[in-house]
Computed example of a mutant assay.
Amino acid sequence: MNDRKFEPHIALVVEDDPDVRDLAAALLEETELDVVEVESAEAALEYLQEHGSDVAMIFADIRLAGQMDGVQFAKAACTLWPTIRIVLTSGAAGDRLADLPDCVTFMPKPWRGLDVLVEAEKAMHQPQLPVA
């Protein structure tokens, strides 16, 4: 019997640029993870409210459409879903890097596909440990 449905098996891609979102999703679809795409932190939080226990990885931009940016979203996600591996990315993070929570891995843009796949592999096999 496949126990996959009881383990986190979703990669949530949060990116407001549709081309970048499609590229990240296409990469992550090469893994064992199912991919869900949203364009804002608000949409991501709404999805997590329903499916948070199924999410293994969040791959999000720092700059997003909507009221919340990726750093604010990551802080909320780290608190509410501490075992999800969170990767934030940006080509122009500026002073937001100083605000990153400890639970986040930062990946500068342009990111390499291999780096994204390595993080997905970690998400599947090494769940994030809650920060004490």
Rank of each mutant, 00 (worst) to 15 (best):
E42L: 08
R85K: 05
I86N: 07
G91N: 12
A65Y: 03
L23T: 13
S40I: 02
L27W: 02
L64S: 14
V38I: 11
A44Y: 04
Q67A: 15
S53Y: 05
A65K: 07
G91M: 12
A25P: 09
A76H: 10
F73G: 01
R63G: 12
A56I: 03
L33D: 09
L27E: 02
M68P: 06
V71G: 09
L45A: 00
R63V: 13
K75E: 12
G91Y: 12
R63Y: 14
T79N: 10
M57A: 05
L27P: 00
G91V: 09
C78P: 02
E37V: 15
G66R: 02
V71F: 11
T31L: 09
I84V: 10
L28P: 01
A26P: 02
A65Q: 08
L64F: 13
A25Q: 13
E39C: 12
D34G: 14
E39P: 11
A41S: 08
C78H: 07
A56Q: 04
E37H: 12
C78N: 07
V35R: 04
I86F: 09
K75V: 02
W81C: 02
T79E: 15
E46H: 08
L23M: 15
A26I: 06
V36L: 09
D54E: 14
V71P: 12
D54W: 06
A74L: 05
A56E: 03
S90V: 11
L48N: 00
F73K: 01
G66S: 06
C78A: 11
V71R: 10
F73L: 11
V87L: 11
D34F: 10
L27Y: 03
V35I: 02
E39M: 14
Q67S: 15
A26Y: 04
A76F: 08
E37Y: 07
C78V: 09
G91C: 10
A25C: 12
H51D: 11
A41Y: 04
S53R: 11
E39F: 11
L45G: 00
M57K: 05
V36P: 00
A65H: 04
L28K: 03
V87Y: 10
E46F: 04
I84K: 00
